[in-house]
Nucleic acid binder design. Structure first.
Length: 444
DNA sequence: TTCCATGATTCTAA
DNA sequence: TTAGAATCATGGAA
């Protein structure tokens, strides 16, 4: 109230804090100046001591003050002072830009389908996420619905809490505004000051809102990692898929790097993604090298299996059917040498093709298909000759990846020479890869 | 419960 | 960009 006392100018008029003379309110021009001073001094004194009085006394005093004829003038002065103060505070608090962290949280919640419009939000986000992670696995639908349900639960909790928060914020703001308006009857409170108070309250509540959003984001992240993390949802490939992959691998043992087309074909046949095919071959190569003894057993098994399958196929179709082994797993295996399935991209011939050819020769000769001699006068013989010329260690795949194993070192890196000797028994190291695109094993 | 197989990921090098 | 290597994490058999 020191300020109030300073409001008196030495000239006897009311001044504001800047020392400007304030307008003379209806104080009665005929009253002596000393008396006016005395009255205002009394009012100020009463205001100063009002807090020392009992509640009843204060109420009575308040009423008296409210009815005092000088009250409006004094109130105006105090309002002006307050306005100046509030302005200075407000000027120091410029409009702040939106909190970037809050914006990030908002964006993420919208992207995840938790915030924003319900229509398709959570479910479509879940669908996209699961579709991306599942790679078309059959059980993805179950996990998708699970994920969707959990996401919907999070969404519901988030919206409930947000509603509570908004309600609490509004209630508290209304309460404070009403309180300030009530108080504005007895003390100068400018509307701008009330606005500022509302802003402060909302800012405080915004911190709570941020926590809510952050917690929700964390929950969504945990949900995603739990449901969509591929490692957690690893499933072994079907037996048939593994068989197909192994057949391809062991038939291309000297150069087990399927081209993109071959990968796509394998992926399609195995019901997995191209990435999974790539992963499988990556793992297979490294694990084959690490445990070559076991791998040899496996390779022998596949070679025998393939030869048997081919023999059965040829036998069932009669000798004239010859090399048409395009159907079935064995067919795929054999077709690697020039059939329809895998040859088109890299023209590589199966490493153990010699075994197969020998087996086929044996079976076909027994079934009267053709003799060893007859082969030399048929297109098959040309193919055979071609293959026999391909004794160069290994070919690179046709797509020419910079990391394709070089012919010189691929044998070493794969120990394929020794392994193929184990398979062939004749040390042929049969690769049969062709640099001539489009050379296909003709049907006999 | 333990151990092994296996699919996926990450990092590094070429 | 791809392959190799190491590693992680899970599934499944013993």
């Amino acid at each position: 109230m020191e300020d109030g006392q300073r409001m008196y100018s030495q000239q006897g008029g009311l001044t504001n804090m800047s020392g400007n003379v304030l307008p003379q309110y209806n104080m009665g021009q005929d009253e002596p100046s000393d008396q006016r001073k005395q009255e205002i001094g009394d009012i100020l004194q009463q205001i100063m001591t009002i807090t020392d009085q009992s509640l009843d006394e204060a109420q009575a005093r308040k009423h008296t003050l409210n009815c005092h004829r000088m009250k409006p003038a004094l109130f105006s002065v105090l309002c002006e002072i307050k306005e100046k103060t509030v302005l200075s505070i407000r000027n120091s608090q410029e409009e702040e830009p939106p909190d970037p962290q809050l914006m990030r949280l908002d964006n993420m919640l919208i992207a995840e389908g938790v915030a924003g419009p319900e229509k398709g939000g959570g479910s479509s986000a879940a669908a996209n996420a699961t579709a991306a992670a599942s790679g078309g696995q059959p059980d993805s639908a179950i996990e998708h619905s699970d994920y969707r349900a959990k996401l919907a639960q999070i969404r519901q909790i988030y919206h409930t809490e947000l509603e509570k928060y908004e309600q609490a914020c509004n209630e508290f703001t209304t309460h404070v505004v009403n309180l300030l308006r009530e108080q504005s009857r007895t003390r100068p409170i400018a509307p701008k000051e009330i606005e500022r108070m509302v802003t402060i309250i909302r800012k405080k509540f915004a911190a709570i809102e941020m926590q809510l959003k952050q917690s929700t984001c964390e929950a969504v992240m945990i949900l995603r990692s739990r449901f969509l993390d591929a490692r957690r949802k690893r499933r072994n490939f079907s037996k048939q898929a593994t068989e197909l992959l192994n057949e391809y691998f062991y038939s291309h043992l000297s150069n087990p790097y399927p081209s993109e087309e071959a990968k796509e074909e394998l992926a399609r046949k195995c019901g997995i993604t191209v990435s999974q095919v790539s992963n499988w071959f990556g793992n297979k190569r490294i694990r084959y090298k690490k445990n070559i003894n076991k791998a040899q057993e496996e390779a022998n098994m596949y070679a025998a299996k393939t030869a048997a399958a081919a023999a059965a196929n040829v036998g069932s179709e009669g000798g004239a059917a010859g090399y048409n082994v395009g159907g079935g797993q064995a067919g795929m295996y054999m077709n690697l040498n020039g059939g329809d399935n895998y040859q088109s991209s890299d023209n590589s011939v199966g490493d153990n093709v010699q075994n197969q050819v020998n087996a086929l020769r044996h079976v076909i000769s027994q079934s009267g298909g053709y003799s060893s001699d007859s082969m030399h006068s048929t297109p098959a013989s040309m193919y055979e000759q071609h293959m026999n010329q391909q004794i160069t260690p290994h070919s690179r795949s046709q797509n020419g990846s910079p990391h394709d194993p070089k012919p010189e070192d691929s044998t070493d890196s794969w120990c394929a020479g020794a392994f193929m000797q184990g398979l062939d028994g004749d040390g042929d190291n049969y690769d049969g890869s062709s640099d001539e695109p489009g050379l296909k094993r003709p049907k006999i």
